[in-house]
C-alpha cells in the first residue's frame, strides 16, 4: 500500500511541478494545489498507513493510527486553502490591472 501511495505521490508531484513551470498563471495555481495534495498524502503515508483504528478514544479499537501526521495535515490543509485563495485573488487582480496572465509578459522591466 505504502509503495503504491509513494508512486501516486510521485506522479502528483511531477504533474504539479510541470504545471508550475508552465506559462499560464492559472496553471501555476493549479500546480501548487496539486503539489499540496501530494504533500498531504506524503505526510500521512510517512506516518504509516492502516495501523489501527481512527484516533478517537472510547471506540472499540484497541490500537490507533498515528494521530500526529493527521494533526499536521489538518493545519496544512487550512494553510493551503488560505494560500490558494490569496493566489487566486492575486491572479485576478493582476489580470484586471495588466490584462494578461501569461508569465512571459509578466516579466517586469527589462533592465533594472
Amino acid at each position: 500500500m505504502e509503495t503504491l501511495m509513494a508512486v501516486i505521490i510521485g506522479i502528483l508531484f511531477s504533474i504539479g511541478a510541470y504545471l508550475i513551470l508552465s506559462k499560464s498563471l492559472l496553471r501555476i495555481i493549479l500546480g501548487s494545489s496539486v503539489i499540496a495534495h501530494g504533500t498531504h498524502l506524503l505526510i500521512i503515508t510517512m506516518g504509516g498507513l492502516k495501523t489501527g483504528g481512527p484516533p478517537i478514544l472510547g471506540g472499540r479499537a484497541d490500537s490507533y493510527t498515528d494521530p500526529l501526521p493527521q494533526a499536521l495535515i489538518l493545519t496544512a490543509i487550512v494553510i493551503n486553502f488560505a494560500l490558494t485563495a490569496f493566489l487566486l485573488v492575486l491572479a485576478y487582480r493582476s489580470y484586471a490591472k495588466l490584462g494578461t496572465d501569461n508569465m512571459d509578459q509578466l516579466r517586469g522591466i527589462n533592465d533594472e
Partner: peptide, 11 residues
Amino acid sequence: VFRAPDLALTQ
C-alpha cells in the same frame, strides 16, 4: 480509507 475522519471532513 486511512482512518482519518477529521481530515476527511475538513478536506
